[in-house]
Design a protein around this nucleic acid. Sequence first.
DNA 1: TTGTATGCGTTATCAG
DNA 2: CTGATAACGCATACAA
Lengths: 348, 348
Amino acid sequence: MENKNNDPAPPRAAGKPPVTLEMVAKLAGVSPSTVSRILNGTAVVSDAKREAVVEATKTLGFVPNPLARGLAGGRTFSIGVVTQAIDSPFYGAALRGIEDELDPMGYSPLFMSAHWDPVAEARCLEALHARRVDGIVVLMPRLSDAALQACAQALPVVVTGRELRAAQLFSLKFDNFTGALRATEHLLSLGHRQIAFITGDEEHPDAAERHRGYRAALQAAGVAFDPQLVVPGKYHEVSGLEAVNHLVAKKRKFTAIFAANDQMAAGAALGLFQHGLRVPEDVSLVGFDNLPNSVYATPPLSTIHQPAYELGRLAGASILQMIAGTQPTAVLPLPELLVRGSSARVRL
Amino acid sequence: MENKNNDPAPPRAAGKPPVTLEMVAKLAGVSPSTVSRILNGTAVVSDAKREAVVEATKTLGFVPNPLARGLAGGRTFSIGVVTQAIDSPFYGAALRGIEDELDPMGYSPLFMSAHWDPVAEARCLEALHARRVDGIVVLMPRLSDAALQACAQALPVVVTGRELRAAQLFSLKFDNFTGALRATEHLLSLGHRQIAFITGDEEHPDAAERHRGYRAALQAAGVAFDPQLVVPGKYHEVSGLEAVNHLVAKKRKFTAIFAANDQMAAGAALGLFQHGLRVPEDVSLVGFDNLPNSVYATPPLSTIHQPAYELGRLAGASILQMIAGTQPTAVLPLPELLVRGSSARVRL
DNA sequence: TTGTATGCGTTATCAG
DNA sequence: CTGATAACGCATACAA
């Protein structure tokens, strides 16, 4: 939060001094307040003056100073967006969705990464609050419900990946349970009975739900649950690879693998390849998330579509609605199974 | 740039009124200026007052308002970062590198996407300038050299992917030519003589350089250049797929493919798979960029490592140096060939 | 409808 | 070393 550098203040920017609202006012022959009103549509103004101001604004190339606007008006027209990892393929799509939604409304996002660390996440929230953002979107928070609700007391907040309702708080949740259920059902319908499951990081609620979906599907199909076939993963590629190594080393019998996300499925695919097991001839593989590149895996990965981009758009639209005083009503699409080349009928 | 919403100003945030520097001053029994000095290390202050202020800052939980700081001091401690696509795997790593470099120095990045559109890019620069960022990093600009140089007259600028030197301008360029040269040499050394090349979007200087590298390697090896083996791509997966379809449809003979980036290589891999061509048994495949997931392709993709993360760090460090008045000296690592499972000795 | 005056929270420039 | 005081650029009651 503090600045570690003690540089002397640099000479004020080399460029020409900035054009201010006051200059526009003078050129247009009106008062600064009138200019402000016209630019913000705050009040009705005579057409004559309006044109004069618009004209002056153009010729001077005036661009309002967001800092001053924020300081004076209390609104910054910026939305804080807390993500866990800006370099994750999943978040990329979501961030773009938010961006696409905010931009046309004149708002701009302020991205920060919390790196799955609750403490860092709290710092992000504080920093954004200090920056006087008009609202905050938290993608897959790791912070406690209470902390999030406390934050929502100060300004509108939208969270994803959690069911949470409060005064200025709106949540957008994807049905991970049903998604995992569908994925497992798919493998069952192909005749698989020995379906290994690579879990996600169990600290994520998502991961636990996907795990439950897997078990629910087995149970519904009357297939006995075999704990030996469940391997803990961490949601990243390496853990998928390690999971397969583990299964093979322990000589577990399995004809299919359901990985709790596509990244682990990619790791698993590599593991299978290294062990000479073909997908889907020897082992069927299903992931979860539908990352952009999963369709280009060889073979293309069967998976559950997680609508990351739409999630971003809906989150963006929702926070804007809350700021406008409307209660958001957005709802995420239902989980959708995408059958591609990595899953096939079991061979006996 | 303008706001399209005419909402009435919302009631001032529900939370408690913010803690101001003035309140800290009162509690500590000193003047606001003294508090400011202490917090910024702007001047030497007696230890007694310093402690009192630090104490007061803590008990009140004071967090300085960045907007006011920026307005009054002229420095915002934020760096504008213009990227082309926030949802691209390549940029993700670079953005993280920038973030990692700025954060410990008390600076925060302000990300904006230009979507490969020069006009949008210009708007980004203007918006960032208006926000009074202390410096700007442009990743792979599409704007003209002149426009970039003009921008650098107003504030420090770092650009990547282009060789460009000016007063407040620093550039970081990766040697795409040598990278492509190495990739092609690798295939040649494996005995391949019919090496297809999938080009990048030729509007990018990078793409042209990679193309030149490919031809230079062929020439150096005394292998005749065959225009039939060069297929235009667009740097995204689909074009890699289409390129392979094209080669097969036209019945071109090739034993290896060099794709100008990993994304197209992924598409090409899928295309080969669909045509029943095995990698590397039937066709060797080499990409460029070393995207995070390329190592999890089946088989893992041989490629040229493009140091995206380091690029981000160096760009971040450089802009900070310029702001501090130092001339940056950063230099990107040389292209590095990563040999993995997708390339093998040619079979006759 | 429009202009005037005041304040937003800090930093910087002066005196002392 | 420290405290007043004046900007920073804009929005907003308030007055006209």
